[in-house]
Simulated scan of single mutants.
Amino acid sequence: MPTILGQNQYGKAENRVVKITRDGATHHIKDLNVSVALSGDMDEVHYSGSNAHVLPTDTTKNTVYAFAKEHGIESAEQFGIHLARHFVTSQEPIHRARIRIEEYAWERIEASDATSQFIGADEVKHSFVRKGQETRLTQITYDGERWEVVSGLKDLVVMNSTNSEFWGYVKDKYTTLKEAYDRILATEVSGRWRFNWTDDEQRMPNWEKSYEQVKKHMLQAFAETYSLSLQQTLYQMGSRIINHRSEIDEVRFSLPNKHHFLVDLEPFGLKNDNEVYYAADRPYGLIEATILRDGCEPRIPEDLTNL
């Protein structure tokens, strides 16, 4: 049976690069995991094995490290843009580059008052602890004419210990869940947001500020919404981002409901007044949705892991 080659790409995945910027005694860290995928005029390497159009994946790896030195890492987005533009414009057979980046955050360790008396404040500006919060993400796609930048985060665990209810839902003969009028609402946020920036260097967003502001509005919406459902909270989180950040047209969230069930303490003669909960890790409700600026079409995949 005749066959033809379909969509394909190749590259070097998970290039771990740590860039230290030394500002005198004060150091700054950028810690990235960079994956490069290239596509274009690559039919012949599949059909005959000819590597005439193939830039070695080892070269893409070396480029990541060289660019960290040559261009620095101002932000994950800016670094990905530099890489994508380089691969598409420097190699004729390459028509499209997709750069995926995870960023791992570090925070400075502060010296105690007692310690700083002996070693001086400057000498602790090179000590860091890995933040135990979210992992930052970005994907940059460039085809020589059009850019698409989608950023996001994962593994951001949040909780409201009150101001959440769940009642009035459909019930049938299999329903055993009791209605809740004061419950814990907890989730582990996976989110992506798509920028409307195309190619105007003058209008390029401040990527670092944008990320911090998106996260701020996301968390404020989670904290301030009196929630009657996780769906309602999700919509408020996305809406607040769209309404406050003009550079973003689309937000998609995947929110697993990290269920906390009240423990029955009556067998022990104890009253559980919304104090003791069983944290169940599975199975869990999974709430997913996209929030769009009015008039925009969705482009973020339903499966966030496919970015």
Rank of each mutant, 00 (worst) to 15 (best):
R96W: 08
G269A: 05
D41A: 13
R98N: 09
L270K: 15
L137R: 07
Q133S: 15
I184W: 04
D23Y: 11
E103T: 09
G120P: 10
G120W: 05
V17D: 01
D273R: 06
R299N: 10
M218N: 09
Q78T: 13
A279S: 07
E208Q: 12
H86R: 10
L5K: 02
E92R: 04
T60M: 07
R293N: 00
Q91M: 08
V214C: 14
D155G: 09
V214K: 01
E92M: 04
M218G: 11
Q231K: 02
I101W: 10
C296K: 12
E102C: 05
K125G: 02
D122S: 12
Q139K: 04
R108T: 15
Q213E: 13
L228G: 10
I242S: 02
E247N: 06
Q220H: 11
E74C: 01
A223W: 05
D281K: 11
T59Q: 01
N306A: 15
S112K: 05
I81H: 05
Q78W: 02
T198W: 00
M218T: 14
H53N: 15
I4W: 11
W207E: 11
Y235E: 15
E70Q: 13
I81V: 13
P267D: 10
A289Q: 09
L156K: 11
I140Y: 06
F79I: 08
H46F: 14
E165L: 02
D303F: 02
E212A: 13
D41S: 08
R194T: 02
R293L: 00
N160G: 04
D281W: 01
A279R: 07
S227R: 04
E14T: 05
Y277S: 08
E148I: 07
K131M: 09
V54H: 03
Q78S: 14
M159V: 14
D294H: 12
L83G: 07
S190K: 11
S227V: 03
K154C: 12
H28A: 13
S210G: 07
E110K: 10
H126W: 00
R282M: 12
G144W: 06
T115N: 03
L32E: 03
